[in-house]
Amino acid sequence: MKKLVSSVLSLTLAIGLGVGAAFAAEEGHEEGGTPHYPIHKPKNLEWSFAGPFGKYDKGQLQRGLKVYKEVCSACHSMSLVSFRTLEDLGYSDDQIKAFAAEYEVQDGPNGDGEMFTRKAVPSDHFPSPYPNHEAAAASNNGAAPPDMSLLAKARGITRGFPLFVFDIFTQYQEGGPDYIYSLLTGYVDPPEGVEVAEGTHYNPYFANAAALAMAPPISDDQVTYDDGSPQTLDQYSKDVSAFLMWAAEPHLEERKRTGFMVMVFLAIFTALIYLTKKSIYARKEH
């Protein structure tokens, strides 16, 4: 009993210290102490794929693909995503072939032992805009732009106590898209008294510092939408964030369907076990 009480007290103390440290860190940042990033927590948006029954909005994914192609692909690769997977977005085989043919990929060696370039086919992956990692770094002040294949799963911000407890029940998995959206829409002028290094841009939603080397990549009316959706920074950011979530987890809908069926099975199985137990022990004397 004493060990149990001691364990409970230790857990309560640890939680209290963690919450206190969080408040202290926030106060320290406001008073000029050691900053903790991101300065602002990512905004929580409503996504069609959120929750246990969420589904991707194919129209939004198609718009996000267009934003990636016309804006993001100039610097960022998506080397783990093949063109043929665009079938999940509602494109036909002919459309995918035509889309892939707009890119060139390196192939070979040929009969003479030399590498060559050719038009991409559906089985190819999205190519990088740079020939190699070193060239990418050299073109971006020494830091190669990250590959976007898994970006939406890799950039989720830890929400901390007590939110992570509620996330277990709400199945919150949208930290990556929330972060990407917040970053794209979060560029502002630095506050008075805050200086950023030359060649960087202040963004309080950036996870690693107060500023980053990437300039604001997109603005209003930069990409033309054919379906009449608003051509605004806010809409572009939502669409490309949703598209990157699909790129990182294309089987999300199937996973959720499987999980729901498993939960239904477990519920029925538990009920049958309980009824079996009642039937067996109903004739037993207690």
Rank of each mutant, 00 (worst) to 15 (best):
K238A: 07
D178S: 03
F116Q: 11
T224K: 15
F49H: 09
F260V: 11
I218N: 01
G33R: 13
L45E: 11
D93N: 12
V121Y: 00
T117I: 07
M1T: 10
V67R: 00
K3Y: 12
F126V: 13
Y130W: 10
P42D: 06
Y225A: 10
A143R: 11
Y202G: 04
R255A: 13
T12C: 14
V223T: 02
A143P: 00
K41I: 01
G176T: 06
K43P: 01
R63Y: 02
E26Q: 14
T224R: 14
E46L: 06
G160Y: 01
P145T: 08
R155K: 12
Q171W: 06
E254R: 10
D221C: 01
S237H: 03
D167K: 00
G193M: 11
K238P: 00
R159L: 08
L61E: 05
L80W: 00
A267I: 15
W47L: 02
D107G: 02
A242V: 02
P216L: 06
L65E: 01
F161C: 06
I39N: 02
A154L: 15
V196N: 05
Q106D: 10
A267P: 00
S149Q: 04
Q95R: 07
A152T: 03
P146Q: 05
A98E: 13
H133G: 09
G32L: 06
P190F: 08
T34L: 12
M263Q: 12
L4R: 09
P250N: 08
R84Y: 09
F243L: 09
E254I: 10
V262S: 07
L9A: 15
L61I: 08
D107W: 03
Y68T: 00
G259P: 00
M245C: 07
K43N: 11
H286K: 14
I280Y: 14
V194L: 10
K2G: 11
C72D: 01
I168K: 09
A14F: 13
R159P: 04
D57F: 04
H125C: 09
G176E: 03
E195F: 05
G228P: 08
I280N: 06
H29F: 10
G32P: 06
A213M: 10
A154R: 15
E192H: 07
N132A: 05
L184D: 01
L252C: 04
I180R: 03
E27C: 02
M115K: 13
D107L: 04
V105Q: 05
Q95I: 03
I218K: 02
H76A: 01
L275Y: 13
R283K: 14
A50E: 12
L65M: 13
T276M: 15
T12A: 15
P204M: 04
E70L: 11
E195S: 14
P35C: 08
G199L: 08
E134M: 12
Q62N: 11
D107V: 10
F260A: 15
S219G: 12
D178T: 03
T117E: 10
E27D: 09
R255T: 08
I39Q: 09
L80M: 12
R118Y: 03
P177W: 00
T200E: 09
Q106I: 13
E253A: 09
K277H: 14
L150K: 12
H76F: 05
Y179F: 15
G113I: 03
F265L: 14
P191R: 03
G64Q: 03
A197F: 04
D189G: 07
A138P: 06
K41E: 12
R118D: 00
L151Q: 06
V105L: 07
I218E: 00
A25I: 07
P109G: 06
A22E: 13
F126R: 00
